[in-house]
Nucleic acid binder design. Structure first.
Lengths: 227, 227
DNA sequence: TTCGGGTGTTTGGTATACCAAAATGGTTGA
DNA sequence: TCAACCATTTTGGTATACCAAACACCCGAA
């Protein structure tokens, strides 16, 4: 099986640090220093930085170190607009193309979330939620869509994760997921899209609320996640 | 102003060759040889190859030279499905957000195409057509959408260009563009989306017809564009 | 005290060499 | 004639050094 290159490995480690907050928004990634810390040369480090910049997690600046992206509310909202179009397309295509195996997997993930909603910790619950949406996209059987959707998940991960922690309303999430599954099972595209739209509207509202409290309580990048 | 890096310059030159057919589908891009031909080192060549692979124009293979992508009908169709969702979103947002300057630019491009349809050569006409669609996306004022849309234009460019050459029906294209502009001007999102949908349906039909004749008349990558 | 210039440091980009792995082609033996 | 093995070539990835540009800081002069 294809092993990861050193660049991919470095990118994964940095991505994890960014998504989990160890590298907070605004933190610089000094190419030479970080390469030395990881015991690698600049070439794979440079490649890894490129990978993460393409995913929207790092912001490249001319003649300066790249920094961890710190998307504004407008940028997050813009990305959610595109994500919404992609997820609505995936639901529409999945209604037409999902196999029984696809539907089984989607049901399994829906059940896993609803059965364990209060016992899962924040990160695990969030990842099951993401897996649910990814399973729907896979059921659309359109690799181009899957790739683009995945890149939006990357760039929106932290905003979604942090906003979801503020308001994890079990009944609402679970009922919306169930409604989406029901629409898929009955191949009722309009119903499935309407349920997903409600879910996405709630996401946008949560993100807005999150940014509002961010500007009230946070001083700046330094005030978050210690280095 | 920010000049291009050598890698970006190389990527642009290779992209042009790919899009214009000088480098046909399936042609290998040998990193060392092509770098030597262009008088550059492997480092920027490697970076340029990465850029084009991210745009879907090159296909990377393990332990083999990358080749010019040769998308199948299924891959092109998949990409058009996503492009359609993105363009429909852009029209919907543009109905809400377009400034008068945006509308002026869209009108100007529509007029340029309709006034010069038969006198423009294939490439120029195609590029005005693309500029028209790009202007609508700009009018949506969503940079994330603009970026993703641009990457789909890149990967679909050749299929669209070659299929458009087969059937360049002036009256149909021009009337659909006018209908889209009218919808934008009156901020009638439903009408603008319906006109765009018709335009996109025709694109898909053209691409299908193109692939059907491709499989009938073409022997293989060697039979197209001499090297 | 402020502004401008110079110097040093940091940085991205590039060139080049080397390594290891994979693929391909040829030869030999059954 | 076919299959297997070996050698050579091709390839991507990585390490390291160097260069030029940009930025920041300090000092001197007005």
């Amino acid at each position: 099986m294809a092993e990861q290159t050193r660049a991919e490995d470095i990118a994964n480690r940095l991505r994890r640090s960014i998504l989990h907050g160890t590298l907070p928004p605004g933190a610089p990634i000094k190419e030479r220093d970080t390469a030395a810390e990881m015991g690698v040369s600049r070439t794979p480090m440079r490649e890894a930085i490129r990978i993460l910049a393409n995913e929207g997690l790092l912001l490249l600046r001319p003649a300066r170190s790249p920094v961890v992206a710190s998307p504004t509310l407008a940028e997050v909202r813009d990305a959610i607009e595109v994500l919404s179009a992609l997820e609505l397309l995936s639901v529409r295509l999945a209604c037409d193309r999902a196999t029984e195996a696809d539907l089984d997997e989607i049901r399994r993930l829906e059940r896993e979330l609803s059965d364990n909603f209060t016992t899962l910790d924040d990160i695990d619950r969030f990842e099951v939620d993401m897996a649910f949406h990814l399973a729907i996209v896979r059921a659309a059987h359109n690799p181009a869509l899957a790739g683009t959707h995945r890149s939006y998940l990357g760039r929106l991960w932290r905003a979604r994760f942090l906003s979801a922690r503020r308001k994890s309303s079990r009944d609402s999430v679970v009922s919306q997921h169930r409604a989406i599954v029901a629409g898929l099972e009955t191949r009722d595209s309009a119903a499935a899209q309407a349920s997903l739209q409600a879910h996405l509207d709630r996401l946008l509202a949560n993100v807005r609320a999150f940014f509002e409290t961010e500007t009230e309580t946070e001083i700046g990048p330094e005030a978050s996640g210690a280095d």
